[in-house]
Design a binder for these strands. Structure first.
Lengths: 251, 251
DNA sequence: CCTCACTGAGTACGCTGTACGAAGTAACTG
DNA sequence: CAGTTACTTCGTACAGCGTACTCAGTGAGG
């Protein structure tokens, strides 16, 4: 399936939605729903069953209303995802950390990681032009504050933050998807490699691709061992932060 | 939309498909198609119109056959994407670079970037358990060869390669998506920010989120300027490689 | 009380992946 | 040679999707 695009609708409508600026109607019957209730239901489904299960009809069922009713509150599915995303962002702790930029960026990465683990469907949402809701803005502000005043230009600050975010996104995605594949197929990585070793051998795997088969086997075994998956995360994060540190040292 | 998952079908069937191991039938009419022709057509559609446009019916139309005909050659859409992916990987130059690990990893990143720019739909394919076709294996082997023998453990080698790949994936995705949004909406980042400045001001943007609005504005202007988009890529890549360099230095 | 903005939701359209089964083709067997 | 049988193509169908359109019912303002 293709990625779900956030912000595919009218940006102005999205912003109104995100900031809760809606001219309240005076006439007519009281609305039975609120955007908040819809978002809560949608989040519950997405958290539990993934983004694919979160269809408009499904959310409507959950709320005991007709499918088309949701369109009275939300312009479309894209905008609903926008609000879901901003809502999740708004619930981040954004803890203030005493220490240097490195300690702060570390916390930024850690909070993002927790968020993705809690809401794995976020990994499937493409945030090209992020919905500038209060949650997204607050998160961005928090991230930038970690690298403010350490000698980077504005563009570099954005790039550094993007670098960390990109790393976390990629790292968590690998881990989550590996876990999901194991859960859905009931086959661990090791078992999978072992099952296909005969075929791969016949192809000439170990001869043509000596490094790939050596490293692949090692990594596969490592991953299946009762293994603290945050090890790999820490390793990569340290490298990313080292890279930023090296840049600062040059100045 | 949700991400398209590769390799959702029977792994054994996928492998047979990827390596072209198919027991040829003797009886019955000659097949009108080949897997190769199907993949070529699918790639043409995906490259030109994105992964969302690449439906089974669309590919079948392109080939002038009924939709269900494709299922005689390919178990399902997931496996088709597997083969598409491996095919693209197989076309990578994988240039041998004279120089140290850094020069080699640089080339690895550059080739990946070119690949993503040429086949943007790859950014939407989730490669959790990569289809171990010849292309994927060759690429992995090539990547590992860049960091072989420089003092990393097998697991670290894999992590280093994953780090670079993850960075490239994230960086190119941001750039491509930004460009796609501009093309589809006809609005540049700058125009978008300017259009919503009044609303954001009313909300108290600049007061509540001083860093975000300052940096956001700067970055927006920078991006719209006739700007070599590889600048940002180079910056981030340099940071990633610096990080790996720092690890090697500690040893 | 009437008006009319507003809400809820049934129906329908075009799209998706793919299971099933019927019909046609060509090579092997008797 | 005919008969069998493996194999191909593909029309039909099903369950699901997002959402446009339409219309009946509601309830506050004039």
């Amino acid at each position: 399936m293709v990625q779900e695009y956030s912000g595919s609708g009218d940006p102005a409508k999205s912003l109104e939605l995100l900031w809760g600026i809606q001219a309240k109607p005076t006439r007519g019957p009281k609305p039975a729903l609120t955007v908040g209730r819809i978002v809560t239901a949608a989040l519950r489904i997405a958290d539990a069953e993934g983004l694919a299960a979160m269809s408009i009809r499904r959310v409507a069922d959950e709320l005991g209303v007709g499918a088309m009713t949701l369109y009275r509150y939300v312009p479309g599915k894209g905008e609903l995802i926008d609000v879901m995303l901003d809502t999740v962002y708004r619930e981040l702790p954004l803890r203030e950390v005493d220490g240097d930029w490195r300690a702060k960026l570390d916390e930024v990465a850690r909070e993002s990681r927790e968020m993705y683990l809690k809401h794995p469907w976020l990994l499937q949402v493409a945030v090209s032009r992020p919905p500038l809701g209060p949650g997204v803005m607050a998160k961005y502000e928090y991230e930038l504050s970690a690298v403010e005043g350490i000698g980077l230009t504005d563009v570099e600050m954005d790039a550094a933050v993007a670098l960390v975010n990109g790393y976390v996104h990629g790292a968590v995605r690998s881990a989550v998807e590996a876990a999901q594949v194991i859960r859905s197929s009931g086959i661990t990585d090791k078992e999978w490699w072992e099952a296909h070793e005969p075929l791969l051998d016949k192809i000439g795997d170990t001869k043509k691709f000596p490094l790939a088969s050596r490293v692949g086997t090692t990594v596969g075994q490592e991953f299946d061992a009762p293994y603290d998956s945050s090890h790999a995360f820490e390793f990569g994060l340290a490298r990313v932060l080292d890279g930023i540190a090296a840049l600062l040292k040059d100045r």
